[in-house]
Design a protein around this nucleic acid. Structure first.
Lengths: 120, 120
DNA sequence: CGGCATCCTATCGGATACTG
DNA sequence: CAGTATCCGATAGGATGCCG
């Protein structure tokens, strides 16, 4: 009933926030196409720091959207890929992202109009 | 090419962040069904503060996703509703939200598994 | 009613250094 | 390679007070 899908009074963020957050969204987008190793992902997810990628992957893994496949070799090799649930989430997420990206010119036009009319 | 749809090195957040952010998502969801006045929205978007709702509405209005209809009456009456572009965004957003909400039990199960295995 | 301005804290998130 | 730990500045976001 309430539109608040997020849990307030809850210190740890929710799944939807993991998904829609800046790094969560980019990580899921990157993993939609293929699995990647940690540093491959770092290069794909442009601008992410080691710390945030690690944190993001842990959250998504805990939520069951990403699977972590660690081989105990030396040097270590760890692959990350989407779970079936993660795939479905990523598809819906990408639908949204692509739509917004695709209408970025409309948005930019609107912003210019808004700003030129002295909207703050 | 890069998966970063967001502009880094950009102080002001991007449209996608306005949309997927906590309050942006909730606000668009609320407005998907009908137009609302400011304080109606505040009650619908559970947990939002006056400040954040105001901020969120400005950003969405500037992006051309929300239309602000202010009647210069006394007391003032201001209605907010989605633009056609905003409607399309809201639909894609709701598809994602509903999916994640609908699989919250799967997520919770995964989290319990993860935590019981000493994850972290 | 529909806001804006201010203050203050919690969290986000980058830089750097270190480990197996 | 695949991370963890720490420090620290930037931002999010709540509380409060005020106004047309």
């Amino acid at each position: 009933m309430a539109y608040n899908v997020f849990a307030r009074n809850c210190p740890s963020r929710t799944t939807l926030e993991h998904v829609t957050g800046r790094w969560g969204a980019l990580t899921l987008s990157a993993l939609h196409h293929s699995s990647f190793r940690f540093n491959e992902l770092r290069r794909r997810v442009d601008g992410v720091s080691e710390k945030m990628l690690s944190q993001t992957l842990h959250a998504l893994e805990r939520d069951g959207l990403v699977h972590r496949d660690a081989q105990p070799t030396n040097p270590p090799r760890v692959d990350y890929r989407l779970t079936p649930l993660g795939q479905e989430v990523a598809e819906r997420l990408l639908s949204l992202i692509r739509f917004v990206e695709g209408h970025q010119d409309d948005v930019a036009a609107s912003q210019q109009r808004y700003d030129s009319l002295g909207g703050r």
